[in-house]
Write a protein that binds this DNA or RNA. Structure first.
Lengths: 136, 136
DNA sequence: AATAAAATATACCTATTTGGTATACTTTTA
DNA sequence: TAAAAGTATACCAAATAGGTATATTTTATT
């Protein structure tokens, strides 16, 4: 029941960019060093974040990355989903061919886990990066 | 953010055993066929469940498996933890050497995710197998 | 216009985890 | 005592995670 290490790194990157503010631009090397993420891997993550609309990239000399949205409008869930894909806690909830619902028209496990998933998503949506920056 | 397929199977096994009641004894082959779990894999899962104290095994002719506790006293969390180990949603929360708390004495991501983890655990603890058997 | 500093795209590699099997053995009861 | 069950241990293959490499493109500065 874990998110990937990549998503974990991504949360730290977004938090760093949130801390410096939307207008600041930081290059990948700086991000990598300050967060202790392997440099090549940092680039890969930043690419996903940019494609997902959370960050902006600036090429060329003086280039780098900045947030593409306000910290307050980015939640834990947004970041995790951009990196790992949709939140779903077991196979049954996304791949119907593995689910008893399909075979016997009733899958009690399915129902229970779906409730858990909903709660998890609500919790991940309830925290945004403005909260995290401001928290003592 | 997913539990393993093994844990998913285990939930179905415990639900099946809950449905037939604590006194009934079912052999592995029957469990495997009724839930569509590969037979050898079923045995492996049942061994973990027995070691974890959730089921009892009976050897020899007429042997099989039954619950070792009442359905009401087994939660989703119990089953998942017996199979997958402790619930923890990122590396930072169980391996301190990867955590900024360790390096800089503050890890805001850590704190936020720990809250999420708590909520998740509470949710998984709130559902027991008596609930699941009785639900329509 | 040339250059160098940055990001981008694509593809690759390796270790770990997951899902599943195989073999040899032990216990139990008819 | 034989057969039907579970047990222990170890193995294997596919998928995923984590990370790297190479070649290319963009852009500010000179």
């Amino acid at each position: 029941m874990r998110m990937t290490q990549e998503a974990d790194y991504a949360l730290r990157i977004i938090l760093l960019l949130s801390k410096v503010g939307m207008d600041a631009r930081i290059d990948a090397k700086h991000i990598s060093e300050s967060e202790g993420i392997p440099s090549r891997f940092t680039l890969k993550i930043l690419r996903k974040l940019t494609q997902g609309g959370l960050t902006r990239s600036y090429r060329g000399i003086g280039g780098g990355y900045s947030l593409n949205k306000s910290p307050a409008s980015i939640t834990l869930k947004d970041v995790i989903e951009v990196i790992d894909g949709p939140i779903c806690i077991n196979r049954c909830l996304y791949d119907k061919k593995y689910c008893n619902l399909h075979r016997t028209n009733t899958c009690d496990v399915h129902r229970a886990l779906n409730d858990v998933r909903k709660t998890l998503i609500e919790e991940l949506e309830s925290v945004n990066f403005d909260d995290l920056v401001k928290q003592k």
